[in-house]
Design a protein around this nucleic acid. Structure first.
Lengths: 201, 201
DNA sequence: CACAGACTGGACCTACCGGTCCAAAAGGAG
DNA sequence: CTCCTTTTGGACCGGTAGGTCCAGTCTGTG
């Protein structure tokens, strides 16, 4: 039998339990470092159930990617409106604060998955690229809005600016994680913000 | 018996063959995705030799990290002198060109290793952090030189600027790898360069 | 209350992985 | 030539990983 959608409330709860456990374990130990037996134990679920809801590990990982993207975006309520300098600055502050709280552990969940899967699982790569798109879009739209409002210069390119900012986030997180120092993200984001600001109208 | 330094020319050649093969395989498939048997086969070497020169997989991985850092720095001859705007711009161009040549595959070898090992192997994390230090230092020194030469404003902080630039590289590479588009690095580096330039005296 | 379909538990299988061990070959120094 | 160290080949081992299978238990519906 192949994969099965849960058809009862209980089934959905089980599937969710598995996905929650898998998402957290994968964030903590990576895909390769997380065995299905670990997931099974953490979700207090039997092997049979795992394979009832997911075709194989790859299938589970794809579901984990999806949930991870949702979590990362969900953890940034500020994404809802990035159409003012204050909003953008506040959003950056939140990102840094999150790393301080986490003691600079873990890096970016999406970025980490990308590093681990991009070369081995083309579908995963595409899904993660989609995650970055959904992350970048709100900033791009916010900048566009600011352009319309006359806060951002006409000549500025919201698309490139948003990409450069996302790159600063990712790079800042790589350095933060490797050096175990949240200030690395602070430095990267301060630079990114100042760069954006240089296009202020 | 524990690990052994090669004492003959032949032994050194064997150890190098193993390390070369391991470094390449790890770059292509990650640490978890590279089995010692893969390394053994690629280096045309027997199991006994592997454990003659390396205590265990972790030991081999540490050696791979060392070699990887050397390779990454070695691939950037421009690091030797980054004390002019032209030199910095040329260095950035080279980095982008490298990604174009590689078809945006692989990302940053150091960053990838960091993502995979930072949370599981503290010693590896420290070694990789050291790699970033050695990468960042030449730019910092170049900027300092430019400051002394009156090309960079007095108020600028070479340390932060170098960190922000390295973050742009890393982030640009993450996006490049995930989106399979070398232009992502181009955008990140153009932004980083413009930011540096905003501190020109 | 019956029964079909959804769900659950866990024994079991095979492949592969990191790691051990040891005997044989190579090769330089006396 | 001899002897000792270095180097080499590969059989072997225990653990664990992903994955299969199926019998048994729920559960909602007619």
């Amino acid at each position: 039998m192949t994969v099965a959608e849960p058809r009862t409330e209980k089934g959905r709860a089980t599937r969710n339990r598995v996905l929650d456990a898998a998402t957290e374990l994968v964030f903590e130990h990576g895909v390769a470092g997380t065995s299905l037996d670990d997931v099974r134990a953490a979700a207090t679920v039997s092997k049979g159930q795992l394979y009832h809801y997911f075709a194989d590990k790859e299938d589970l990982v794809h579901a984990v990617i999806d949930r991870t993207v949702q979590q990362v975006l969900g953890a940034q309520p500020a994404l809802a409106d990035l159409s003012s300098w204050a909003a953008i600055a506040g959003w950056c502050d939140d990102l840094v604060q999150l790393q301080v709280d986490r003691h600079a552990i873990g890096g970016c969940p999406i970025g980490s998955l990308a590093g681990e899967l991009a070369e081995t699982d083309e579908k995963a790569r595409a899904e993660l690229a989609g995650g970055f798109d959904r992350w970048e879009a709100p900033l791009r739209e916010g900048l566009r809005q600011m352009q319309a409002d006359g806060k951002l210069r006409r000549g500025a390119d919201p698309t490139s600016l948003a990409t450069a900012t996302l790159a600063a986030i990712q790079g800042g997180l790589v350095l933060t994680q490797t050096r175990r120092d949240p200030q690395q993200l602070r430095i990267a984001l301060d630079a990114a913000y100042a760069y954006l600001r240089s296009f202020a109208a």
